[in-house]
């Protein structure tokens, strides 16, 4: 039984790490631009498909090429879809709807190019049995990358000039501009980094769960839930929230029927919205 408990917790951590991969880029972009970029899910799927497309050339080529191309595509989405809307002083609601439209458009593009059938990335994936639980090489990579993201993004936001500029912009756009921060430039950088993270997420999730054109939709919903639980205003918070979500979901269905998995996730989200709307690490929003 103890080995089952260990495996159960490990499964929760792996699920949480997957949500983390999605939530990190999503919440980074949200933090800077202050709107929900749901097309992040489609960008993630494109990252996975680009990796699939270049897979034949070996990892050393496929990995950087797909990440760089996805990163550029994310910035391009910002440039072509969101920037013109911002110029017209569109509200966050308009940007949110346009992100849904962008998501549908990008998903349909994937469908047109690669078709609807599921693609697999054949790779050696040894199972490591550590006595009380077993984990595959891909799953180790997922958890490791999630932890690196937690560390890296915390450092980025707190220690670097760029992170400080991002936070300043998020805090008060007008004041940030008066001290010489160019919002559009920072937005572009946020989309470049966030979309590169989406590509990493898409590739790892593609290796673990295979590829389909709409793979990003459910992921971005779970990543969003994780981000809200952890605190939308804090990137490390979003990562912690995602881990918590994965753990609670998996441990929850140990006792509850497995069909309740989605219900558990949203019950947790609901509880947080009721009792701690700012999330685990988020700061209380001041009334505007």
């Amino acid at each position: 039984m103890s080995s089952i408990a260990a495996q159960l917790i490990l499964n929760g951590v792996i699920a949480g790490a997957i949500y983390t991969l999605v939530a990190s880029g999503f919440s980074l972009i949200y933090n800077v631009t202050k709107f929900m970029h749901f097309a992040h899910g489609a960008i993630l799927a494109i990252g996975a498909y680009l990796f699939y497309a270049f897979f034949g050339l070996g990892w050393a080529v496929a990995l950087p090429v797909s990440i760089i191309l996805t990163s550029i595509l994310g910035a391009l989405t910002n440039f072509l879809v969101y920037r013109p809307l911002r110029k017209r002083k569109a509200s966050s609601a308009v940007l949110l709807i346009s992100s849904l439209a962008a998501m549908i458009f990008l998903n349909a593009t994937l469908l047109a190019f690669w078709g609807a059938d599921v693609k697999t990335l054949p790779h050696a994936n040894p199972i490591f049995d550590v006595g009380i639980a077993s984990i595959t090489a891909t799953q180790i990579a997922i958890v490791a990358v999630a932890l690196l993201l937690l560390l890296g993004l915390t450092l980025l936001m707190k220690k670097t000039r760029l992170g400080k500029a991002m936070r300043a912009l998020a805090d008060n756009k007008d004041v940030a501009q008066t001290v010489g921060i160019n919002p559009e430039r920072i937005y572009t950088v946020a989309f470049l980094i966030g979309s590169a993270l989406a590509a990493v997420a898409g590739i790892l999730i593609g290796l673990e769960q295979n590829l389909n054109p709409v793979m990003g939709i459910q992921l971005v919903i779970n990543g969003f839930a994780g981000a809200v639980i952890g605190g939308m205003t804090s990137v490390p918070g979003a990562i912690l929230g995602s881990l918590l979500l994965g753990l609670v979901e998996n441990i929850g269905i140990w006792w509850l029927p497995s069909g309740y998995k989605g219900a558990i996730a949203f019950a947790l989200l609901f509880l947080f919205l009721l009792f701690r709307p700012q999330g685990i690490l988020g700061k209380k929003q001041r009334e505007a």
Binding site: I4, Q7, L8, N11, G12, I14, A15, I18, Q209, N210, M215, I217, Q218, E249, N250, I251, I253, W254, P257, S258, G259, K261, G262
Partner: peptide, 14 residues
Amino acid sequence: TFDPDASDFKTIVL
């Protein structure tokens, strides 16, 4: 039972 949009079955199978 699992939902059609699920792709993580680890705990279900556990």
